[in-house]
């Protein structure tokens, strides 16, 4: 099967079969929307990790900034929702500029410096009461609008919006990966000096990846704000957004473009439908187990592991 056919089948399923089959079940559609939201952060996280070689523990920072920018633009400045969501991405990208001094830091220091930024943003959102409403949060954030007779404010409408956002993010990711920028970033992992010597400004490239990753995360955060119509700092900047995104990306394979999304859907749905039912309190223990197990037994993610198993079997059959 060629990739084009696979893609066509996927699109028909995602835009046709899934809504037809599950559209009548708001609970399940709600879960899928939440899993796609996490998928969006996860794709952005993996883009930074795979292309930029940087592990972030603070993507909640960009998620929260995006959510607040879009909510405030629509509520205080009267912007329409969709342009405000784009502006939220820009806002998150600008916020990422504030984190750029951290790019000079090595792996673990960068990861935790970004976490510090997330904390700072959360505290600022709590303290700047006149702008953000403080700890009480923002109520009745405008819902997604009705366009051409389609009500994007419904659960199913939200599904189409977040699905499109995530697929566009993945397309962008793939385009970057294929471009000379992607090639240079790939080469930087193992041959940093050699890459610089042929003219690559590695710090600048990493900075761009951080901005792209923040942009995507910000748009996803904005979507979520308009989807649930409510924000408070502890929710918008919750560490859980980062945790779920990391688990999804590691589980699905953060070196692939599709892995993080698949990981998010599987991890979130299994967590909510299965483990939450078995363990009402502390079901996230499963996320920790999953994360640890993946790092120890298949750091490349589950999908590459399955693919490798499958091809090995095929090879041994052929032999």
């Amino acid at each position: 099967m060629t990739n084009a056919i696979k893609l066509a089948i996927f699109l028909v399923l995602a835009y046709g079969a899934v809504p037809l089959a599950l559209g009548g079940n708001p609970y399940v559609i709600g879960l899928i929307v939440a899993s796609l939201t996490i998928g969006g952060i996860s794709v952005a996280w993996a883009l930074l990790g795979n292309l930029g070689g940087m592990v972030s523990f603070g993507h909640a920072a960009f998620f929260g900034v995006g959510a607040y920018v879009s909510a405030l633009l629509t509520m205080r400045a009267g912007w329409p929702v969709f342009p405000a969501m784009l502006a939220a991405g820009v806002g998150a990208a600008i916020a990422s500029v504030a984190t750029m001094p951290a790019l000079r830091l090595r792996g673990p220091y960068f990861a935790l410096a970004i976490l510090a930024y997330a904390e700072i943003f959360r505290i600022l959102a709590t303290e700047l009461k006149s702008v953000t409403g403080g700890a009480a949060g923002l109520l009745s954030i405008p819902r997604l609008p009705m366009v051409l007779g389609i009500d994007f404010g419904s659960k199913l409408g939200g599904y189409f919006v977040i699905l499109t956002i995530v697929l566009l993010a993945m397309t962008g990711y793939q385009l970057i990966r294929r471009s000379p920028y992607g090639l240079a970033l790939k080469a930087m992992h193992d041959s940093e000096d050699a890459t610089k010597v042929v003219g690559v400004n590695s710090t600048m490239l990493k900075a761009w990846m951080l901005m792209v990753s923040a942009f995507i995360t910000g748009v996803v955060g904005a979507f979520n704000a308009h989807y649930i119509n409510f924000l408070e700092p502890d929710y918008a900047f919750a560490g859980l957004w980062t945790t779920l995104a990391i688990v999804s990306a590691i589980f699905g394979g953060y070196r692939t473009v599709t892995g993080p999304l698949l990981g998010a859907v599987v991890v979130y749905l299994v967590d909510q439908l299965l483990f939450k039912a078995i363990l009402p309190q502390g079901h996230q223990i499963v996320l920790g187990v999953l994360l640890g197990a993946m790092i120890l037994f298949s750091p490349g993610g589950l999908m590459p592991l399955l693919v490798a198993k499958f091809t090995r079997k095929e090879a041994s059959h052929a032999a």
């Binding site: 090639l183 041959s191 050699a194």
Partner: peptide, 8 residues
């Protein structure tokens, strides 16, 4: 010592 750009 040749330093090709890895993975490319």
């Amino acid at each position: 010592v040749p330093q090709p750009l890895h993975e490319l």
